[in-house]
Each structure stands twice: as C-alpha cells, then as structure tokens.
Nucleic acid binder design. Structure first.
Length: 556
RNA sequence: UGGGGCGUAGCCAAGUGGUAAGGCACGGGGUUUUGAUCCCCGCAUGCGCAGGUUCGAAUCCUGCCGCCCCAGCCA
C-alpha cells in the first residue's frame, strides 16, 4: 500500500461517530459487514466494506464479518469462501467471523420474551391472507383473528413450530405492533417462519428461521455493534429495528444509520440481475472480467488500491447517485501508471519492411521499463528488417493532424530508429498487406543527433521474434448508462462487443510474463496476465483499461 | 394515495448564519522517444423553485416542484 494513499474524507457517519464519542455515548467503535451468502460480492459491496472496515480501523475499533444466514433456501456455503477471499483481497481483515445462525438460540429466547410480554403472537393466516390484511398505504390494515391469543397458547404454538409440528407456510410468529401504522413495516411484521430445509450451518437443528428485521438488530446487539450501517432502503425498517431492541432485553443497544449504495454507469449492481447474467450464460461466470464483481474486477486487472480509491472518491452520503465509469477507470489508470512496467505489443498487425536494413540480421535495443522510473530498469528488444506495427498507425491518405506513419513521412519507432515510408503494398482487392520503409542508422535508440523533428512515435514488434498470444479486449458490458432504463429490460442493453479476443504479437520478454502481473502496452492500455487461462510461456492477456486517447476522442 | 428519504456545476462531493473546498469530466497552455504520464490556468454573482426572517441565508421559516424507497413467510 502506498504511503500517500488518499486519506479517507469525512462523511456524515464519521461525524455521528465523532459526536457519539465526544458525548461518551459509546466507548468503542464496533462495526460489521453482514453479507448474505447468496451471491458474489460486487463493487457496491466494496463501498460498504471500505466504510465498515475503514471506520473500525481508523477509530481503533473492530469490525466483524457476519454472514447473514437466516434464509436457508437462498444461501449456499460455496459463496462463503468467495466472500472471504474478496474481502481479504481488498485488503481488510475481520476481527472474527460470525453468523446470524450463531445466535439462533438466543434469538429464539428473545422471541419467547416478546410473546410473554404480549408483544408477539402465532398467526395461522396464510401468506395471501396476511398480505390482504396488511392493507394499503393509505388504508389501515385489519387485525388477524389470531392476534389476541392468550400468551400460553402462543408459547405452546411457538414451541411446537420449533418442534416441527407445523408445515411450511402454515403458521408464523408476528410482532404485535400496529396494523394502522403509516409504516408498513410496523403492521405486525413477521418474525419467524417455518422452513423445513437443511441449513448450511445448523443442519436440521432448526425448522423455523428468523426474519431479517428480527435477527439483524439482535445480532448487532449480541456483537455490541456501536454503529450499524446499511443502505437507504432500510430507513423504513429502522423503527422496527428500534422496536425489537426496546422491547426485548439485548446485551447492548446499537443504532442503525443508512447511506446511499453505489451505482455505476454502464453496469448493474444488483445481485439478482448479476445472478441472471451468470445463469443465462451471458458472462462466463461471477469472475468474468466484465462483471462488476470483486472477483471479476480482480480478473480484469483492477487492484485493491484502485477499488479502495474509488470508494474514497465517491464518498458516503444519503443521496442516490450514479457514478460515471470514468471515475473507476481513472483509479486503475492512476495506480497502474505508477506501478506497471511498459512493454510493446501489436494487437492488429501490419507488416513493415525496412528495405535498407540488411536481410537476415537483427540487433538488440534498450528499452526502459518505465519512462519516469529508471529504478525499474530496462530490457533488450530485438529489432530487424521485418516488423509489425499497428494497422491504425498507418494511413495512406492521412489528415494533417495524423502524427503517425504515412507515405513519404518520417516517424520514430519507439526505442529504435526513424523510418520513412517509401511504398505501400496491396493485394488484388486493394487491401494493404505491408508497408516499406527506409531507416536512418544514425537515429539508433530513437534519438535525433541532428535535431531533426519527427511527427510521431509508434510502437512495433520484431516479426520473427514476436510471441503470439491471445489478448482479450474488454469493453463495458452494457451500451447504456442505466441498463434497462429505456428498454425496460437490462438484458436488452447488453453490449455485444464487450469481449473481443484477438491474436496479438508481443515483444519476446512478454512470453515469460507471470500470471497475475500487470503491464502497460505502450500507447494501448493496461493489460493483466489472466491467472486462470494462462499457461507457462503462453500468457493470455486481459485488457484492463485503455490509455486515455485524446486523438480518438477528438475524432468522434 | 399514506409514510420515509434526497435535491450544491455534466458526474461525485465539502459546506452546519459571515459571503460556494476538492476530485472526475470539459476547455486552454507547457514538458515529453507513449496523442500516455506530469505541470500550469480556466470552469456555480450560484446551491430544485417561490416567498419570508436577518446587517448578512446553500445553511433558519413557510409553501410548492422533482427524484428514490416501502404493501415478501427476501435481505
């Protein structure tokens, strides 16, 4: 981690913490990151992770990783390992791993306590009936006929629910609050439901499972969470969060604060939608380099630093917002510009023949690994009569501002020589197959001993020495800033060109590139050696992001 | 329709009665063997709108407008 990493800016939550500390309302800061293990973590989760772990770190507090496993029909343990990996990779360490299921027995006792106080009851209404009884926003609901069962009967029924005497959906435990409340969450919310399924952690020990609103606040209390941070859509749940804590006897009294979740242009951050992309094969998996998941970004070539930087840059507020893709892309450009060694690669080759270079000969030239960091050293690259250059770097009839190769003009081959285009060779269809040039031996290394100016510098690779490999050019997964906004279905906005694989030619040194390493291919972008698909001496590169290109931008 | 939130530049975001930080984007200039990087400069007489209080309002009051969330035995 670099020492000059941006200091985390203040935000309203940190202000609340400062005030709580100053007023002595809390003595230690305890937070938690509570994912439900029903999918992979995405960059929106990264915001919550940075917030919770970041605060705990900065305030000398602790942060727990809590798997919120209250719904066994949706959750799988295979997601647990992936979530742990992602958090570690991001650079955070939890104090302990907890599960909501660790508290099932305690939770059960608190429910019994509510029943004894006359604040909860077993309801025999069906799911549909409960929905009908709940009423509308502008009309109060009606009380269930089972609402006023005697405490003893409720206790007995609830015990028998636990014992497995009732089938799924036949009975639930409900809080007795207010069927006329303007807050729908307070119209006798369900606390427990019957689910006769095996739980990933507790096996068949339980057949009743607590609902989020009941379990979450009490789990927070068990862990002595000082500040329970969640997203905006839970604002309406806060009165219920408080009600449960105030009407049972938890070991501590946490408080919930809500912040706006992250939204990014040209992608989606909804677990449901991401799952659909995976399940329908639109992407190769949760770690497809186009996915906004932590594992996808990692495989794309994003670094933990860049993602943490994004979280710092977007801040924490209560305002719904959609962050431009450019902000994310910039964080990785900034990081990799500092750290990635440079190399040359040609993605769309055009043969260049240097007609005055001796046939069958070659030489080695020096190239710096980083133009601003001599300490990163240099390497040798072979040069000879036949090279590949980028097809885009040659134009037969070029506009005046085209600072590249064009007939009759001289350009510099990076770290090599000045060359002048003398001929253009075409096939029968008029397609350019090669360009002929002459070179000036006095300009070896790319210098200009006579002070001669050249219109541009282009990259190249020696044809006989080049390493051929696969490079995947990734682009945004969707074609519109807010997928589905106009079409109604985000699937309709998928970008058909989001993954293009090309055969590329690399300078020889790149053949030994280690899986998981980053490079800048000069003038093209940052590329990452895919850790899964690469083989020894046969790296497969993923394009993380292109370089800024003011030339391309100006032409649009 | 009832309730809960939120509106500061194209996108984020500081600001908490004393005269609009910062980042990204954008525009201009400089350096450059990457049209990259880097370095300068510019970019809200204005804070959703309309009134009001005040010597003074993005900050306080009133009214309006817009957007988001809520009627799972999901989280």
């Amino acid at each position: 981690m670099s020492k000059d990493e941006t200091t985390t800016p203040a935000n309203f939550i940190r202000q609340i913490i400062d005030e709580d500390l100053a007023a002595d309302r809390v003595s230690q800061i305890v937070t938690r990151f509570p994912p439900e293990p029903n999918g992979y973590l995405h960059i929106g989760h990264a915001k919550a992770i940075c917030l919770n772990f970041g605060i705990a770190g900065d305030y000398d507090g602790v942060c727990y990783l809590r798997f919120d496993d209250t719904n066994p029909i949706k959750e799988e343990s295979r997601y647990v390992e992936a979530i742990k990996d992602d958090i570690h990779w991001l650079g955070f360490q939890w104090k302990e791993i907890r599960h909501t299921s660790d508290y099932f027995e305690t939770l059960y006792s608190r429910a019994v306590e509510l029943i004894e106080k006359g604040l909860a009851y077993v309801d025999d209404l069906s799911m549909e009936e409960i929905r009908e009884y709940r009423g509308k926003w502008n009309a109060p609901g009606q009380e269930s006929p089972y609402r006023n069962r005697p405490v003893e009967e409720n206790l007995d029924l609830f015990r028998r629910m636990r014992a497995g005497e009732f089938e799924d959906g036949s009975r639930v435990l409900r809080a007795k609050i207010d069927m006329a409340s303007s807050n729908m969450n307070m119209r006798d919310p369900t606390l427990y439901r019957v689910r006769k399924v095996t739980h990933q952690n507790t096996g068949d020990e339980w057949c009743i499972y607590p609902m989020y609103d009941f379990a979450h606040c009490l789990s927070d209390a068990e862990e002595h969470i000082s500040h329970s941070l969640c997203s905006l859509e839970f604002e309406d749940n806060r009165p219920l969060y408080d009600w449960v804590l105030d009407n049972s006897s938890p070991p501590s009294r946490p408080h919930q604060y809500e912040f706006a979740r992250l939204n990014l242009e040209y992608t989606i951050l909804s677990k449901r939608k991401l799952t659909l992309l995976v399940d329908t094969g639109k992407v190769s998996g949760w770690d497809d380099p186009r996915m906004p998941t932590i594992s996808g970004l990692r495989r794309r070539g994003y670094t933990p630093e860049s993602i943490r930087d994004l979280c710092d840059r977007v801040g924490v507020t209560k305002k719904d917002s959609v962050v431009e893709m450019g902000v994310l892309e910039n964080t990785i450009r900034e990081d990799l510009d500092r750290t990635a060694p440079r190399a040359m690669a040609v993605l769309n080759p055009l043969k260049l023949v240097i007609t005055n270079y001796p046939e069958g000969e070659s030489e080695e030239l020096d190239a710096a690994n980083h133009p601003q960091k001599p300490e990163m050293g240099s390497r040798k690259i072979p040069f000879g009569r036949e090279l590949y250059i980028e097809r885009d770097d040659f134009m037969e009839d070029a506009p005046k501002k085209f600072f590249r190769l064009t007939p009759g003009c001289e350009v510099r081959l990076r770290y090599a020589y000045f060359v002048t285009c003398t001929d253009v060779i075409k096939d029968a269809h008029g397609h350019i197959t090669e360009v002929h040039c002459t070179y000036d031996p006095a300009t070896k290394g790319g210098g200009s001993p006579d002070g001669r100016k050249v219109k541009g510098t282009i990259h190249w690779v020696s044809a006989p020495h080049a390493v051929e490999t696969q490079v995947r050019l990734y682009d945004r997964l969707f074609t519109t800033p807010v997928p589905g906004k106009d079409t109604g279905d985000f699937m309709d906005d998928l970008n058909p060109d989001s993954a293009v694989t090309v055969k590329a030619f690399l300078e020889p040194a790149l053949g030994a590139a280690e899986p998981g390493s980053h490079f800048q291919f000069e003038r093209l972008g940052y590329f990452f050696v895919d850790p899964i698909d690469s083989a020894p001496q046969r790296p497969v590169f993923n394009r993380t992001v292109t370089l800024r290109d003011s030339w391309a931008k100006g032409r649009k």
